[in-house]
Amino acid sequence: MEGPLVLSPSMGHGAEVVAALLCGAGFGFVLERAGFGRADNLASVFYGRDFRVLRVMFTAIVTAMLGLYGLDLVGFMPIGNIGIIPTYLVPQLIGGLLLGAGFIVGGYCPGTSLVAVVSGKLDALLFVAGVFVGSLAFTIAYDPFAAWHQSGGWGPVLLHEYFKVHSGVMVLLVALFAVGAFWVTARIEAALRRGRSVS
């Protein structure tokens, strides 16, 4: 580790607990006010009616990305100082497909379902119960899959490393991709609204 940050190695256990609670509370508060405590709000992104989910998510990713790579650029917090999510390509692909299926069938993802439970949604309570059962089933059945699940790791590979471009180029491309997605999805919403009002 070099550089003055991340702060956590210099914190005691109590401070780490408080930091995690506060970060979680900020996360939960924003998810709830974003409207993510309702399954119909979330699912409508998959029917082209309201791309709120995509807007919030991509804006959040771009905001945090600009912050991370900005702090990396000025040397305040090199990107290698934080825990980069390692790439396990096939598990992430299969897990992503399953989570997408869970999302459209169940109406939530694990984080949003927690927020929906505290806002009184019975369907979210059942979803959370399901998450526990799924996690339990996987844990019990894990050992035969362990070799597959733990092999083929690529380590902490970043997009710009994989595509062999400068990190600044990748940051710009991702930001442009998000803006492009905002523009396209706004047109889809407008077209579907027109279509519905005609029929």
Binding site: P91, L99, S113, G130, V131, F138, H149
Partner: peptide, 14 residues
């Protein structure tokens, strides 16, 4: 909702 939750529980582990 329960079925979707169970799928997600497995998915997040995978």
């Amino acid at each position: 909702a329960f079925i979707g939750g169970a799928l997600s529980g497995v998915a997040a582990q995978v």
